[in-house]
Design a protein around this nucleic acid. Structure first.
Length: 426
RNA sequence: GUGAGUGUAGCUCAGUUGGCAGAGCACCUGGUUGUGGCCCAGGAGGCCGUGGGUUCAAGUCCCAUCACUCACCCCA
């Protein structure tokens, strides 16, 4: 029979890599809950319209990267390419939307985008998502940024840089876009790449983010959004920066930071790592004050971020997996029943261990136990069975002693519960 | 969607101007009774990604195809 292989851009996560994901998720729950954020679980499949309306019909994500298909009744559905739209949709449908208060959520899980895979980019990827709804204070921005930074610190990541920008609001952004369009129209068209000649009219801020040399040169002398903010946006942004200045977060302003989803306005940010390849953004987010209204809900502000787990995983390395407490080596067929029951008794007491199902030579079983790096090896053969005993061998010291089968728990010792896996930046 | 690179043992990779398919690590079995790690000896394991072509002869040259990787675009 021919093998069925996984589809492009999808992947299986085996240990020890899978433990890095458990670590990221557990740390997220721990950190986010300190800020009173609660976990939200939502579908990964939504009506296509939800993403088209929120992310923006003209964005690359919606135009060419979505997994979209029809269900059996011909409705257009899409595997979520990001989480915020779904969170807002769920929020609007919940009683919470009418409460008028502040809501704090986090959610995590798989996202899907149909792109060419490369380092740090897969077609199914995983994000940790945080949303703060119903508050437009600059301190809300501050809370989000501090929490994100705190989470990354808790993961043990240090070589990270946070970039900040403000995209303005509906009051000042249109004026800036006009100003920028005029500027680009006056600059030499030949110095812009073909993409940017198009962007210069449709989405001028994207030109500022282009890496092509000619475009970057034009961008360097272009007007900056940060110089064109209205009074409200300027004050808001200054307050956010004032909060950050009192912390140890190392940030820098990046007037060229343009996010790929249309719903962002005012404060936007990205966290960059320099050593995970070309796809360097490990987290990104911003304020989306008009989004809830645009999706049919009340006109309330919001801010949030997403963290890419595959990219974080590139920065994490497992240094120690918790060793098993025992390996159970059975040396005679007749001992198998007794061994099974003893192992069960140990597991009920909280010991972790693996049982060998095949009767093999003592030598090969000890070799196996050694390779598995267990703390102790339990040996049960004909002699022990007859005497009601069992051999307990400490694999680090080599010391072995025979004990009554009733005393295995004590023999395995009290030094068993060690810390869970820990991770360090490599 | 565009470009480049790589496909040989479980893993990492050698393989010369075309001439018998290789190494290291891992694995298995021994080194005297039922005792791991270190060492020594032996062993197993490959449709050389797949399909065509050139040739007396192809892992090697040519064409096609598939897969993977990295980069562009874009993004977490």
């Amino acid at each position: 029979m021919s093998k069925i292989h996984k589809i492009k851009g999808f992947f299986d996560l085996f240990p020890p890599e899978s433990t890095a994901y458990v670590f990221m998720e557990e740390t997220a729950r721990e950190v986010f809950s300190r800020y009173a954020y609660q976990e939200l679980r939502i579908p990964i499949l939504e009506q296509t319209e939800l993403f088209a309306r929120s992310i923006g019909k003209e964005t690359d994500v919606v135009q060419k990267e979505m997994y979209t298909f029809e269900d059996r009744k011909g409705r257009s559905l899409t595997l979520r390419p990001e989480a915020t739209a779904g969170v807002i949709r769920a929020y609007i449908e919940s009683p919470e939307a009418g409460s008028g208060g502040v809501s704090r959520f986090f959610t995590l899980g798989p996202m899907f985008r149909y792109e060419r895979p490369q380092k740090g980019r897969t077609r199914q990827f995983h994000q940790l998502n945080v949303e703060l709804l119903g508050e437009d204070s600059a301190f809300a921005d501050g809370e989000i940024l501090l929490m994100l930074w705190s989470y990354l610190q808790k993961l043990g990541l240090r070589q990270l840089n946070m970039q900040l920008n403000s995209l303005g609001c509906t009051a000042c952004r249109p004026d800036f876009d006009t100003k920028l369009k005029n500027f680009l129209a006056l600059s030499e068209q030949e110095s812009l790449c073909v993409d940017c000649q198009r962007r210069a009219r449709s989405n001028p801020m994207r030109v500022l983010d282009c890496k092509v040399k000619g475009c970057a040169a034009v961008a360097s002398s272009a007007p900056r959004i940060l110089d064109s903010l209205c009074r409200n946006c300027r004050d808001h942004f200054d307050r956010v920066l004032a909060v950050l200045d009192k912390t140890d977060i190392s940030y820098e302003l990046n007037p060229y930071l343009v996010r790929g989803l249309d719903y962002y306005q005012r404060t936007t940010f990205e966290v960059i790592s320099t050593d995970i390849g070309a796809q360097s953004a490990v987290a990104g987010g911003g304020r989306y004050d008009g989004l809830v209204r645009d999706l049919g809900g009340p006109d309330i502000p919001g801010i949030g971020f997403a963290c890419g787990m595959e990219r974080l995983a590139l920065l994490l390395r497992s240094i120690q997996e918790r060793p098993l407490d025992f390996y159970f080596a059975v040396l005679h067929e007749d001992a198998m029943d007794t061994a099974m029951l003893m192992a069960q008794r140990l597991r009920d007491k909280g010991f972790q261990g693996e049982m060998g199902f095949q009767v093999k030579s003592i030598k090969s079983q000890l070799r196996l136990a050694n390779r598995k790096k267990v703390k102790a090896c339990l040996l049960l053969g004909k002699d022990e069975l007859e005497k009601g005993q069992i051999q307990v061998k400490d694999m680090s010291t080599g010391v072995q002693r025979a004990v009554s089968q009733d005393d295995v728990e004590q023999a395995l010792g009290l030094n068993l519960k060690t810390k869970a896996e820990s991770f360090v930046q490599h």
